[in-house]
Amino acid sequence: MFGRPKTIQDGLARTRQSFFGRIRQLLAGSTLTPEAWDELEELLIQADVGVDITTELVEDLRRQAEAGKLRTPADVDRALRERLIAMLQQGAPSVVDEPRLLTVILVVGVNGSGKTTSIGKMAYYYKQRGRKVILAAADTFRAAAIDQLKIWGERVGVDVIAHQPGADPGAVTYDAIRACQARGADMLIIDTAGRLHTKYNLMQELAKVRGVAAKQVHRAPHETLLVIDATTGQNGLAQARHFKDTVGVTGIVLAKLDGTAKGGIVFPIVRELGVGVRFVGTGEKLEDWAEFDPQLFVAGLFDQNGNE
């Protein structure tokens, strides 16, 4: 939160100095030793990629190496990158930039994943790109959540539509859509209360918010973003599954990628649910926000210019 603005590369620098940097070192040798395969497995698992994908990748690469298709560590390195990139390239592209009168983005996630901060940064991002953005404070549950969003609204310079704490999130959404139409805003971003995906009633409430948007604006919400904390382990997949079932998540925001966590949980999520990663959050400042690029993400993981 201090110092220069962070970019996705900076966020990833931390990632590569620790683990993927080591993969690179391992693979920079001249021969493929059995230990190298074990280390490769360890490194992928430690990045939260998950047991299934890790085992599959390592076994597959190993088979190819044994069949003589991959001869050097450099070959393995290249094949691994290709596989990882391909895995992240699934999912329909975002339709946010398609022309329409009002684009509605619904933001959901478990408690503390970083929804409100992400919304502040996203609002700034789109405002910089010439959109007229309004924020809806539909987290009426958590203490002071509305004020938190209002402060972000002031920082960015966009309007925030809010009711009293405890108000119906659906009603807030309705009013916010009306406000967008009245004030000529072309983008509405809805902040919702954090909820564990296992809480049935809270998930139903979210479906209702979605329903209100759908009724008021043609094909809304045009994007439903699930915010996932980069430190999340394998539970991230269960989160994504439930939120997708209930509100039709169309994209992932990977928040807090400026720590030492790798965010490898996006691999199983993207693969199983076919939902792409849209953005990466890398800090607490307005500019700590970047579009997700699979090439860059994976290339960044493997780059050698970390500070190790």
Binding site: I45, Q46, A47, D48, V110, G112, D229, T231, T232, G233, Q234, N235, G236, Q239, G259, T260, A261, K262, G264, I265
Partner: peptide, 12 residues
Amino acid sequence: ADAMTGQDAVRV
């Protein structure tokens, strides 16, 4: 600490 934390819990 969040019960959902992954492998990075160790370093944190």
